[in-house]
């Protein structure tokens, strides 16, 4: 029983991180129909910026996260301006290749600047706490709480503000949004900023329990893709639910099936789903 509870808790932690990453990915996909392969690199850069601002400038953890949000958000925005905007009329294959180019560049750049070592990120939440017969670190609780708070804020932003509404409008109907005067360039840049910020938050809260290294984004981004396919490309609730489903499945699978192949679960899930439904679950009408 304790093992089960412990694993459920771990699943929630991992799922929270997955959800945040998948949210960024799905927002960009909803607006621009770009599967942003470089999103994993943004995640990785987010982890490094937080870690390095703590290590080099000595700022506290939360200030580090704030710096990371601004830096990675701006980086994502620059990416949109310099790369994806010029490519908006190109065949879809070009976006993917360009995204891969960015991914390779960012990863190598980080490796060049900070080396390829695995680094641990310090956290003020290192103490453990016991309840209901399980023992967890405060960091894990913080991850779950932070993820929920971020999701609520995002939801409020998308539903209650004009700018957020513009993002939603554009993902629903591009031409319709233009007709009522939505500025496509601004919305695209903003979406990329939000997407980068989400990646930075996810990386910053996950890094203290994982590690920071140049390849840390690889698996996360692949799984985020799995999630948005499960949850429907471009769907916000889908990304959140999909993230938790995957997190829970993985941590239960790792305990009760095989730890070595736990990473495989996501991909087998994806292969099975796409085999049966090539358009993904919850395929939206008219979405490409």
């Amino acid at each position: 029983m304790d093992v089960l509870l412990q694993q459920l808790f771990n699943g929630l932690t991992v799922g929270s991180v997955y959800s945040l990453v998948a949210l960024g990915l799905t927002l960009v996909y909803g607006i621009l129909h770009i599967p942003n392969f470089a999103h994993g690199a943004l995640y990785m850069v987010g982890g490094y910026i937080t870690l390095m601002s703590m290590a080099l400038m000595g700022v506290p953890y939360f200030i580090g996260i704030a710096i990371s949000i601004v830096v990675v958000g701006s980086l994502a925005m620059v990416m949109e301006r310099l790369v994806f905007n010029p490519l908006r009329h190109a065949p879809p294959i070009h976006d993917k290749i360009a995204a891969i180019g960015i991914l390779l560049f960012l990863e190598t750049l980080v490796q060049l600047v900070w080396g390829a070592d695995y680094r641990a990120m310090p956290t003020p939440f290192a103490d453990t706490v016991s309840f209901l017969g399980i023992t967890v670190t405060w960091q894990r609780i913080m991850i779950i709480v932070a993820a929920v708070v971020v999701m609520i804020l995002l939801q409020l932003f998308l539903k209650k503000t004009m700018v957020g509404a513009a993002i939603v409008a554009m993902s629903q109907n591009r031409e319709g949004a233009f007709l009522v005067g939505v500025n496509a360039n601004k919305v695209a840049m903003l979406t990329f900023f939000v997407s980068g910020a989400l990646a930075a938050i996810a990386a910053s809260i996950a890094s203290p329990i994982n590690l920071v290294y140049p390849g840390m984004g690889h698996l996360v981004i692949l799984k985020a893709f799995v999630i948005i396919i499960i949850g429907g490309m471009g769907s916000v609730p889908g990304a959140i639910i999909g993230g938790y489903i995957l997190g829970l499945t993985e941590s239960l699978g790792a305990t009760f099936i095989s730890a070595a192949y736990s990473d495989l679960i996501a991909f087998v899930l994806l292969v099975v789903i796409l085999t049966m439904k090539p358009q993904g679950l919850f395929a939206q009408k008219g979405a490409h």
Binding site: H33, P35, P92, K96, L222, F225, V226, I229, M233, Y261, D263, L264, F267, V268, L270, V271, L274, T275, P278, Q279, G280, H288
Partner: peptide
């Protein structure tokens, strides 16, 4: 046979995952 039932982005993501499965195995 299976992968090509998916199109464009789905195909790229699907094959990316197949590649990763092969690597993991």
């Amino acid at each position: 046979l299976i992968a090509l039932r998916t199109k464009e982005h789905f195909f790229a993501i699907y094959t990316l995952c197949v590649g990763y499965i092969i690597y993991l195995i």
